[in-house]
Design a protein around this nucleic acid. Structure first.
Ligand SMILES: [Mn+2]
Ligand SMILES: [Mn+2]
Ligand SMILES: [Mn+2]
Ligand SMILES: [Mn+2]
Lengths: 218, 218
DNA sequence: CAAAAAAATTAGGTTAGCCAAAGATCACAT
DNA sequence: ATGTGATCTTTGGCTAACCTAATTTTTTTG
């Protein structure tokens, strides 16, 4: 298994390949690789029983491919956690480093890292860390953008994009923060929220509010 | 710069390419790559001004190549130190992991690791860790095998070979240990030494004694 | 010093991935 | 139901590394 094949599996996983068909185009866009190259690689992954490919219909992970992808996500997120917790990286900068380290991480190393970090549940952006055996719980797919005015919610996960994370770091927002939605300004204006305990409201851009997943507080 | 090119530079460095010419054969043996392939890669490295190659005469590093190689050795040894000190690997097992991690280590990551480890001077096998700018001090080239009977010496560095290191771990020998040479048994028999403070002598195989470098105690 | 052995280089061929462009298929709006 | 644009696959070609085998150069040895 090569690093590139691993990245294909991982993006298929991230695009929902465990429960639905993923398009060639989305993979092509996600990896920045020409569509023709994607078709070629996908057919190799299909030969290895890691994905199922119905030409012109879409691509999904086999159980084997899903397990492999989840283990990669685990390694990726363990590294991100290490970099933030131990090496004091800021959380916008860890993705790039983890993106390459993940491919050079033996199962033994992953286990040792997990112990060292005391079994973290989630990465710095709130992404759940799959178990060593490749299991992962369901995650929220509710967007902050879709919360109602007045609702009190917990920020669960930020999409792993450098610009977004830099922006959120400036706004001093973190996964786990409890916030109250004040109002949605019209015409794709910002979402105004208030952090629990704070007096100043925070403007979250329309676009950012569509890249943050939340959990409704009980 | 690809991982393979990096490994070429590193082995040339380790074979003495900073101060002498290295043979095609030694590189071929060291990397387990066919001699013809070595010639081909060396000529690419020469194009990039990283090595000087005189056909049929040998290969040596340019200042630029030496700096690059030293930075790789630094990254390699920082990882080895991390694995032993923080993740509790035994010192025979770290080389393999470091061999791949070294190629995915940004300068920023190396600096962060170095801080986290509190600026270690040497790796777990006693190899000096070059500075961030690629400087490295002279190292001992005196073999334990060449110490005189009765001499008191410090074990400085073990060659990084899994079998050797496993063997030395069993003998409970570590870089930094002070030992007295008792006698050289004839016909390639073991070297008998005694650790400072211990009563039992230790037999070190003839072969092992040729893979350990020492510093004479003052 | 010449023949044999060893080492290095050159030549020809393979594989993994990538791309651009051409051709096939699909989806949807008239 | 058909035409058009979007998407997907196929084709042909490229580069980086690797290999084996043949050839050339250097070194060693009788
Ligand atoms: Mn990430
Ligand atoms: Mn990756
Ligand atoms: Mn090593
Ligand atoms: Mn390496």
């Amino acid at each position: 298994m090569t690093p590139m094949k691993e990245d294909y599996l991982k993006i298929i996983f991230e695009l929902g390949g465990s429960h639905k068909k993923v398009s060639n185009k989305d993979i092509s866009l996600g990896l920045g690789i020409a569509a023709g190259s994607v078709t070629e690689m996908v057919s190799k992954l299909a030969d290895e029983q890691l994905v199922v490919h119905e030409p012109y219909a879409g691509i999904s992970l086999t159980p084997k491919g899903e397990k492999y992808a989840a283990e990669l996500v685990r390694k990726h997120r363990l590294w991100e956690t290490f970099l933030v917790d131990k090496l004091h990286y800021n959380f916008a900068d860890v993705h790039q480093e983890a993106e390459v380290l993940e491919h050079q991480t033996s199962d033994r190393l992953a286990t040792a890292l997990d112990n060292f970090l005391q079994h973290p549940k989630a990465c710095p952006h709130g992404g759940v860390i799959p178990s060593a055996s490749g299991e992962f719980p369901e995650v929220s797919r509710v967007l902050l953008a879709d919360a109602k005015d007045g609702e009190k919610v917990t920020l669960e996960r930020f999409l792993d994009n450098h610009e977004l994370l830099t922006y959120l770091e400036e706004l001093q927002l973190r996964p786990g923060d409890e916030v109250t939605v004040v109002r949605h300004e019209p015409f794709e204006g910002p979402l105004v929220i208030k952090k629990a305990g704070a007096d100043q409201p925070i403007n979250v851009s329309y676009k950012a509010s569509h890249n943050i997943f939340i959990r409704a507080d009980k």
